[in-house]
Design a binder for these strands. Structure first.
Length: 466
DNA sequence: TCTGGGGTCCTAGGACCC
DNA sequence: TCTGGGGTCCTAGGACCC
């Protein structure tokens, strides 16, 4: 049997943990740059606020209604999340962490089980030990368990769907609320008169395969009680990207370089945390599509690294090189993004034919890697900007930046980065950075006006108790 | 002034192979 | 004369998720 455990208004609950004065008060949590509402508790929902509301549009109304707003504090949420998961792990032998606030717990199919009793115990334990309210949906498949959880949130926090109750239950669920049925599939299904999860459950599989793709077919099987969606066993990501919108428009290459270097630092930290190396680096640069002033622009270029690596200087230099090729003067830039792709685990690493320290000091150039494909950049000219013409900038040499490489061996790179990791592990993740990411402009810095303290992860943020 | 960030999986279609 | 059939791999873009 599968339990889907979901924290209620997780970010808002985390903020409230350390603010008992806000119990029963409406709370919203904002995205980066305090742009939109990404999470809100029931009290705020009752006042009519919605996930996705642009903060600048609703801030005044929220203030009048006595809503407390928080900038998102992911450090806090991640720490609370891991504490919640530690409780799951104690009470269930088989836990799949699905997202920061959702997990699937797998229990054996016993003869006469009291699954609901187990769920209530789980719920009470998390609430008592961590202070976070969770709901539990119980069903034979993950899709049904997600639906059960939706119902649990409306009721007393626990809901079980079994073969006796499944038909009646699904009749009350709009098809768009089913896990895996998004905006596009909902529109398609409603045109054909399929409005509820019960309707979808009876949709013929061969039609589903044709019109809803294999994922839609799996969803239907799951609604019929047949597990069809595979568990996510892998712990590591396949892509890592880092990107933030700027608080204000940015014009200069130098500021973009600072921002991109900062995101490269962040992306490589996550890359190294999961023990991977990247094969490709991709950089996106774009203006604000909402902005009516000035021309729009959206460009992207990719490059293959010499070899899969997690060496920050190499990745950052490659990224900056790409940025300089994409950059056009006179645009009001809104966002720059780095994407690390083709991730390999350290232990799978394939040694390059030429990856020998003897060649490192004098890297073979030109003729050495004839088979190394230069990544053609399909650089698309974005939205309204036809003159971007990235074609001529489209070929990025496989051997990275044009600057001469320092004579430093692979072993030395590894030692250097290990030292870098240790220092940042001890003194804070930004204690040591590459020069390029330290700068004063800062117009690209995030706006986080309502940030709560790092109550659980920073000695300075620990609350005083009187 | 001001509209998020970080992911996964799937498919179509092109390039290429014998 | 005759213009197939069966594959693989890769990428961009769509759809979806939290």
């Amino acid at each position: 049997m599968i339990f889907h455990v979901d924290a209620n208004s997780f970010y808002a609950s985390c903020e409230r943990l350390f603010r008992p004065d806000l119990s029963d008060r409406p709370i919203v949590v904002l995205s980066n740059n305090d742009g939109i509402i990404v999470a809100l508790n029931a009290e705020a929902k009752d006042l009519g606020f919605r996930r996705g509301d642009a903060w600048f549009k609703v801030a005044e109304a929220a203030d009048r209604a006595g809503v407390t707003a928080f900038s998102s504090n992911y450090t806090l949420y991640a720490d609370i999340s891991s504490r919640v998961v530690s409780v799951y792990n104690r009470l269930c032998p088989d836990v799949e962490v699905y997202s920061i606030d959702e997990s699937f717990l797998y229990y054996p199919d016993w003869e006469c089980p009291d699954y609901e009793g187990i769920a209530r115990h789980l719920r009470n334990t998390v609430l008592r030990e961590i202070g976070i309210p969770v709901s539990v949906g119980i069903a034979p498949t993950r899709t049904l368990a997600k639906i059960a959880n939706k119902l649990a949130k409306k009721g007393d926090g626990v809901c079980l769907i079994d073969s006796a109750s499944v038909t009646r239950t699904l009749e009350s669920i709009p098809v768009g609320d089913v896990w895996g049925v998004g905006w596009s599939k909902t529109a398609f299904l409603e045109r054909r008169g399929i409005r509820t999860a019960a309707d979808l459950r009876n949709y013929p599989l061969h039609l589903a395969k044709k019109h809803l793709t294999i994922t839609g077919m799996r969803t239907i099987q799951e609604l019929n009680g047949i597990p069809a969606i595979e568990r996510q066993e892998r712990e590591t990501n396949r892509n890592i990207c880092s990107s933030k919108s700027f608080a204000e428009p940015v014009y200069t290459l130098m500021e973009l370089e600072q921002a991109l270097s900062t995101y490269a630092h962040e992306a490589v930290r996550r890359l190294r945390d999961q023990g991977s190396r990247a094969t490709f680096v991709s950089v996106y640069l774009m203006t604000n599509p909402w902005d009516d002033e000035g021309p729009q622009f959206c460009g992207q270029l990719s490059a293959r690294l010499d070899r899969p690596t997690s060496y920050l200087p190499a990745i950052q230099e490659t990224a900056l090189d790409l940025l300089r090729r994409i950059y056009r003067e006179g645009r009001r830039y809104r966002k720059v993004m780095i994407n690390l792709l083709g991730l390999e685990e350290d232990r799978d690493l394939q040694a390059s034919l030429f990856d020998d320290d003897r060649y490192q000091a004098e890297p073979p150039r030109g003729t050495a890697h004839p088979s190394e494909p230069a990544l053609a950049a399909p650089a698309y000219a974005g939205s309204a900007d036809a003159d971007t013409n990235l074609g001529e900038a489209g070929k990025v040499a496989g051997d990275g930046p044009s600057r001469p490489r320092a004579a430093i061996s692979g072993q030395e790179r590894e030692t250097l980065m290990a030292c870098f990791d240790r220092i940042n592990g001890r003194y804070g993740r930004d204690a040591l950075r590459l020069g390029m990411s330290i700068g004063e402009g800062r117009s690209w810095r995030m706006r986080r006006r309502f940030l709560s303290p790092a109550y659980t992860t920073d000695i300075a943020g620990i609350p005083d108790v009187h």
